[in-house]
Write a protein that binds this DNA or RNA. Sequence first.
DNA 1: GGAATCAGGATTGTATACAATTTCAAGCCC
DNA 2: GGGCTTGAAATTGTATACAATCCTGATTCC
Lengths: 220, 220
Amino acid sequence: MKTNDSLSPQRAGKAHVVSGVIHGLLQGRWRGGERLTEDAVAQIFAVSRTPVREGMLELAAMGMVQLRRNCGAVLQPFGPKQLSEIYAVRTLLEVEAARLAAVHIPASLVDTLRLDFERLQKEKRPDEGWKFDQLLHTTIATQSGNVRLAAEINRYTLLVQTMREAVGEVLSGIQSKSIKEHIEILECLGQRDATGASEAMKRHLDQAERSALAAVYTLQ
Amino acid sequence: MKTNDSLSPQRAGKAHVVSGVIHGLLQGRWRGGERLTEDAVAQIFAVSRTPVREGMLELAAMGMVQLRRNCGAVLQPFGPKQLSEIYAVRTLLEVEAARLAAVHIPASLVDTLRLDFERLQKEKRPDEGWKFDQLLHTTIATQSGNVRLAAEINRYTLLVQTMREAVGEVLSGIQSKSIKEHIEILECLGQRDATGASEAMKRHLDQAERSALAAVYTLQ
DNA sequence: GGAATCAGGATTGTATACAATTTCAAGCCC
DNA sequence: GGGCTTGAAATTGTATACAATCCTGATTCC
């Protein structure tokens, strides 16, 4: 059993198990409710059970599988409803972070981000734009001043990113709308407008949810 | 090395490593910034490295330690600031859950909870009261209708519960205030008053934070 | 004398073997 | 015939051994 599809990365490791299972779940390789034994996963990814176990724990923390002692892991269903729930929590966390960051963030940092962003806008490089989106979200999370809140946000950022990889979501088309939303957020942060920043962040994430939803739908 | 203090539970296992490290951190056995090797933890709890590794992953997910590849785990500092951050996120999640639950919760369930609660109030059994608190929070989380939100809330409930164990927080004294807050929440839920329920929940959690803060302070 | 290099030790990452627990179905008792 | 018991298979939980990686300190070259 030495297949070479997207489910079997060449190099072993816990991270590949995690992303591989998510890919498989989103791409319809497995269905929600199915039970996965550690041995089965280990054989699929050609690794031992040790990294599989650790990967499953991570997947359980992500809410992708449910672990029961000595009973195996059951894959949780994934569809529009689940995606919506993910974005509901993510929005809750990031809107609060934007509100807090508007108070704490140094003006110099806002200016730096704005310059980076304007330079990017002229160059029009899609892949770089994706990095900026991540930078903005990470910065706001950090500047909220709440380390734990930032950590939770990063967890969701990572989850969404892994999902994007799995469905091969094309991001270049989103850029035009996304750019405007980013500018709005930055403007509010610069003016220390907490309410405005949180509202702008909410609009941005609602848009991102719609985009992700479309990507998942076209998948099936 | 077969000590029998609170850091060395009789029975081995991942769960004991997790609670044991948290106990040690909150009780001043270790300080924030200290580095823990897997071998050291394994010896302290008299288990092999396998459950230690899994426990450390869980602790990292809780934000109690920071893991770096091949570098060991550094304990995160824990004090009033960290406690406040935990409650900030917990409040964010549970207030939203209360808002949502007020819309979705069946009237029959509210009545059942109310009856349970009134019966409990007459019997005045402190340990049972603690269970009801947990039941109320869990029910509201579930009735939010967002499975993922409920899962995140349960993570924090578990974290707070473990911390309470670690500091030996006495809960009997809180009951008198807590009872009133519980009633308020139930009233609002029964009337489908989303705003009221969320505000009542916020007041309840703010009170719980103050109580937890006092417990941590008296500890040191 | 200072900085880059390289070897040794320390520590995590993975593989495998074994123990403990659970599940599930066949068999037995009522 | 239905429900309980029981035992074997399956599966997870733990222990140990080994491989890979990283940190540290002494050594050497400039």
